[in-house]
Design a protein around this nucleic acid. Sequence first.
DNA 1: TCGAGCCGATAACCTAGATCAACGCGGACC
DNA 2: GGTCCGCGTTGATCTAGGTTATCGGCTCGA
Lengths: 244, 244
Amino acid sequence: MSPAPLITPLIEKMARRDVISPIEREALAGLLGPTRRVAAGKALVEPGDRPNFSTFVVSGFCARFTLTPTGGRQLTEINIGGDFVDLHSLLMRQMDHGVVALADCVVAPAAHDDLRRLSEQHPHLTRLLWLETVVDAAIHRQWLVALGQQNAASRLAHLICELYLRLEAAGIAQNFGFVLPMTQVDLGDVLGLTQVHVNRVLMDLRRQGLVDWKAGHVTINDWEALARLGQFDPTYLRLQNDPV
Amino acid sequence: MSPAPLITPLIEKMARRDVISPIEREALAGLLGPTRRVAAGKALVEPGDRPNFSTFVVSGFCARFTLTPTGGRQLTEINIGGDFVDLHSLLMRQMDHGVVALADCVVAPAAHDDLRRLSEQHPHLTRLLWLETVVDAAIHRQWLVALGQQNAASRLAHLICELYLRLEAAGIAQNFGFVLPMTQVDLGDVLGLTQVHVNRVLMDLRRQGLVDWKAGHVTINDWEALARLGQFDPTYLRLQNDPV
DNA sequence: TCGAGCCGATAACCTAGATCAACGCGGACC
DNA sequence: GGTCCGCGTTGATCTAGGTTATCGGCTCGA
């Protein structure tokens, strides 16, 4: 038996939503080029780039970012193993943001020519890839609600809930514990807060016994309470089976 | 000659990006069902709905919204004539948010069955529709940056710039003036601010001579200064010609 | 083995924007 | 023709989170 292709985590994710035929699995497996390692802190994609391939995350953590003229940085999505970080560049052509590795990553390219060909030959698979970008948008919307309407503690709680469910769905986390290689500065750049305030809020969550967070390892002690605090409703992650 | 089909604004928008063949135009024109009027303040789509069609805006203003358990409301995108408000429901199936008419609207449905059929027969058109949802995501990202990193005045300036460019691209605005049927409460729900603070910031922009805003009519007096204040870069709207 | 630099933790102080309250205007409805 | 009521405007006060600064522990490279 041949080894599982690198794209397996994506196929697993898709297979939760819809049936993927053997032919479709093969088409997906043929998409990825040679892997590449990216060290923590390095950019995978720079804002303004016009890549002719999309980058798939085999393992590691990365984040989409936008730098502001005033020296700020906003992270707009965390991407994990099994995600494409810039599938949309197939259609946007020019990157409206960058992607940075939050921890060491292994990534692989999918050539736009091949993706375009796939879209000609596999409409059902195309819709599933389309869905990937649609879920990205849903995640953005949820963060907009968090930034616009929720206070710091609620935002942080929401982020932890989302990350756990996504990592669990990708088979990277279980039993309410996961590795999260992000500094408090990174968290601040996600949540629109300063590092100082992230620390204050995190200490609060710890004191309340909702989560442990030590040396990059998170444990959720009270999922119900955390989800309530974060006003978390997982509908937007689209983890249910529902054929497209 | 037959009258221009209702979907024309969308075709125009797409034609700025890529060549649309006569056959493709016909396929798009056949997509829309009978129009419906929606009064200002009414919801077009409720959160949690599982529509079997996507709603196209022929004319008017509407907005995607999420209500929070604490009584807040966040608007996550403004949609105008020529936009689909929930094209993503073809793939998400269940709505993660609602859509409300900000002003009286005329809308028309595109059945999901027909959209799915189109995705089987017209890959190029499918990519252009995919791009529509990808631009939605880019708009969300830009608002995330605004909410996370920019102050109230900068956010408002950014919103005005975005709305003007999108309205101009849709042929609804020109000469830096446009009708904007939104109350200051609506603006607050977009910008994550209270109505009171929206008013203060708006008064400031007026005093600085950047914009006029009277009786729902906006005039931009100094585009350069407004764009600078809002840190506005239109790349994310993807208004350039660049075939997919 | 010793800095240098990053990261988390905490304290003191400060502001952008929230909250609360009041008022004026114009349009809809009795 | 009066009376709501939604909408915009303004003022006074309050607070969540920002700013600035300091400190201790760890790692890593010279």
